[in-house]
């Protein structure tokens, strides 16, 4: 395997999001970060590249803010980065994002493996990885909790409520990784200081032969509201077994205990 491409999204740090009493989302000068599960994708790609002697390349698409992702993505391991930047990609839906990313993957060339997070930290639609596979015409393995390369084959484990599945496919292919696939490494000082020196190429959609007509969202976001659950504030008075029984009855009636 020569090249692994890891895809990531530059999202608002959820720690900077709050919900007011009316359910409105509040973000005052939010900071941005590489989306949570995409960090697992970057770590998985970096580990595989180290093991196979391949090159790990990071790729993103978004508006101008995404250019700021460069050092954060590259300090985590990839040796090179690419970004497709256009204002039309500010709130791109999964299809548009996948269209752009798959065009970029083809332009980068020589990739045998594309790794994505299972879903983004903001929208969590879980569609970009599968749609890239569809656009490239490659096989797809999803929700990997571990990845292993064996020559031209790639095996993953997928943990589910019924047990663990072992899946295998032939390269080239697309894999999406689950959050428990790995623990992203702590970049050292040298990684942080060296990230800005790694090559990072910025393309516009037109350089990928994507026309203005293609840069249109199929989905429109009507409104984003926060979920602020009302507390029931149930107070159980008394003490000892009587109060404990009451707590258990309450938990059963709420469906917490079966």
């Amino acid at each position: 395997m020569e090249k692994i491409i890891v895809c990531y999204k530059w999202v608002v740090d959820e720690n900077d999001i709050s919900v007011d009493y009316d359910g409105n989302i509040k973000m005052r000068e939010p900071s941005y970060k590489v989306s949570l599960y995409d960090r697992n994708a970057i770590e998985a790609g970096t580990q595989l590249a180290e093991k196979c002697g391949a090159q790990c390349v990071a790729l993103t698409a978004g508006d101008a803010k995404s250019e700021k992702s460069r050092k954060e993505a590259l300090c985590a391991g990839p040796s090179e980065g690419f970004a497709v930047i256009d204002d039309a990609l500010e709130s791109a839906d999964s299809l548009l994002t996948a269209t752009i990313l798959s065009a970029a993957i083809s332009k980068i060339g020589d990739a045998q493996l594309v790794i994505c997070g299972e879903g983004s930290g903001d929208v969590y639609a879980q569609q970009v990885g599968p749609r890239i596979a569809a656009a490239l015409g490659w096989p797809l393995l999803t929700y990997a909790t571990s990845i292993e390369v064996d020559g031209e084959k790639l095996r993953i484990k997928r943990d589910g409520s019924e047990g663990t599945e072992l899946l295998e496919a032939v390269l080239p292919l697309v894999v999406t990784v689950a959050g428990d696939c790995n623990t992203p490494r702590m970049p050292g000082l040298k990684d942080v200081m060296g990230a800005g020196k790694k090559p990072f190429t910025i393309w516009s959609p037109s350089e990928l032969n994507c026309s203005a007509e293609e840069l249109v969202n199929g989905l429109a976001t009507m409104e984003i509201i926060g979920n602020r659950p009302d507390r029931k504030n149930i107070v159980i008075k008394g003490s000892g077994k009587e109060a404990a029984d009451e707590v258990i009855r309450g938990l059963i009636s709420e469906g917490v205990l079966g």
């Binding site: 970060k33 700021k68 050092k71 954060e72 300090c75 702590m186 970049p187 000082l189 942080v192 200081m193 990230a195 800005g196």
Partner: peptide, 14 residues
């Protein structure tokens, strides 16, 4: 700087 912010971000998490 970007590097200082990155250093702080990773350190806080870690």
């Amino acid at each position: 700087t970007d590097e200082e912010l990155l250093f702080q971000k990773h350190l806080r998490e870690g």
